[in-house]
Design a protein around this nucleic acid. Structure first.
Lengths: 143, 143
DNA sequence: CTTGAACCTGTAGTTACTACAGGTCCCATA
DNA sequence: TATGGGACCTGTAGTAACTACAGGTTCAAG
């Protein structure tokens, strides 16, 4: 058994972390700065020296972002997990309220889409110097 | 006919403009600063002195924002209109591409919603220290 | 030992506002 | 006419979540 090799922990540069997660390097450093990722140990020369735990944590953050959580919500989730005293109910509550926010956004966007489609459907679309869309947007007050 | 009265133009303070449009005062000044609204004339004491044209323009901007246009898109629309040489086709193109952006956002959000619902549906929800949502979010890499 | 890619820190820019601080002006009332 | 307080002024800084440098150091392959 090979003496002083420690294959237990795979060492990763920030570039490798970036490649594995698809998260760009500046963003990783940003997450560290705002305390979402722990300060990793450094090599002699001062380069960041990550391991698999950092990788998992960053992946968690990225996955959270893909699911539309804010960094603050993600921070909240991580604190729960780090504290070790989280319950499924806690996480469920946070997730459900996030789902509700997403639904609200969707309904706002659908309303916009509906109104815009309605407006644009009345356009001639030609090379003429007047447009129903503009008229409606200017007419939205008083008159 | 009453000599030096000029009822032709209703004069408005920034506060009045704010009330009419629902746009907050700081935001009006911000729009002026970034060149979306023209610098209005001032009273002797330096207060902004608006008229109905300013009101219409601000209403246009607000309406655009409600419809999800960015300030840059609105700036584009206003430039077209101000230039006087816009065509219905121009506006239609801009509007259609905005609608496409909105559709993309909606579909992103729907995807998030679907995934989150699926995740949360597998939660026990109880007072237990483990959660399917957390598991999935941590498991999203390699594993 | 050299070279160039990868890394480092620190700062500033992005979008669309919002929130002051620290002053000045306006005008209705006493 | 004096005055008080609300409305207004400028300028700066903060928000979210990054991104983009500049200007320097380290690493690793040849």
């Amino acid at each position: 058994m090979s003496g002083n090799k420690h294959p237990r922990v795979r060492r990763l540069t920030i570039g490798a972390l970036s490649k594995h997660t698809g998260c760009n390097i500046e963003t990783i450093r940003y997450y560290e700065r705002i305390g979402l990722l722990p300060d990793p140990p450094r090599t002699e020369g001062g380069h960041r020296d990550y391991d698999e735990d950092h990788l998992k944590r960053l992946a968690f953050v990225r996955r959270g972002r893909e699911l539309g959580f804010t960094l603050d919500q993600i921070r909240g989730l991580l604190r729960l997990v780090d504290g070790g005293d989280f319950t499924c109910a806690d996480v469920q509550r946070i997730t459900l309220s996030h789902i509700a926010e997403i639904r609200d956004k969707i309904s706002d966007l659908r309303k916009m889409e509906r109104v815009l489609k309605e407006m644009v459907s009345k356009c001639e679309g030609g090379d003429i110097p007047e447009c129903h869309v503009i008229d409606v947007m200017f007419a939205s007050l008083g008159k």
